[in-house]
């Protein structure tokens, strides 16, 4: 597997081994590459889940540190480098709101998306694009996927919020992800 690296508009091809070697050596160019290509995607996910700029920034920073620290654990047979980073970021964000000291700052029951948009106007734009993407899914599937993947709700919280049996939430999420795979294989 090879990666396209963008260094000051210069595109380089680098092997997986070289990327790992570069990250282990704290190579600034490798960091620049990761940051320029993935920070907005990772931060977008972290912000959607945590709803707080300061917490999302912490998550982003911790994600990069973990990527540098655990790059030797990356296994390309399990997915791309980006999906690996994305999982670290999502898990980190969800851990923050569920298990960390920041968990008290976020009240799922009182989550007001409009207010979040006011604080983070860029999220509204991002969400508009997201809804366009998700519009190809059924409403139910779209809603559970949004709450689960983008806002970090647990399945039981989704069941409570949507007044839906727990088992239905699980099956809808499963179907939603599979539908998404058909649209974007």
């Amino acid at each position: 597997m090879s990666y396209s690296l963008h260094f000051d508009n210069i595109i380089e091809k680098i092997s997986n081994i070289d990327l790992i070697k570069g990250l282990k050596a704290k190579d600034r160019k490798c960091y620049n590459y990761l940051y320029k290509n993935y920070s907005a995607k990772l931060y977008g996910i972290a912000l959607h889940i945590t709803q707080k700029t300061d917490i999302a920034e912490d998550v982003l920073q911790e994600t990069f540190i973990k990527v540098f620290k655990h790059v030797h654990k990356f296994d390309d047979s399990k997915g791309t480098f980006f999906t690996w980073m994305l999982n670290i970021c999502r898990n980190g964000a969800i851990d923050k709101i569920r298990y960390g000291k920041e968990s008290k700052k976020i009240q799922f029951d009182s989550l007001n998306v409009d207010m979040v948009y006011e604080e983070n106007p860029e999220m509204k734009l991002a969400n508009n694009e997201l809804w366009t993407l998700l519009d190809k899914l059924d409403d139910d599937h779209k809603e559970v996927l949004k709450l689960s993947y983008y806002y970090g709700y647990s399945h039981s919280e989704i069941a409570k919020k949507l007044n839906m049996p727990f088992g239905s939430v699980k099956s809808k999420i499963r179907i939603a992800i599979r539908e998404l795979r058909k649209i974007y294989p």
Binding site: A40, K41, Y43, G44, A56, E122, L130
Partner: peptide, 12 residues
């Protein structure tokens, strides 16, 4: 799922 992240970008 990572496609969703592509669209939900927010620049830090």
């Amino acid at each position: 799922l990572s496609m969703m992240a592509d669209i939900g970008e927010v620049v830090p």
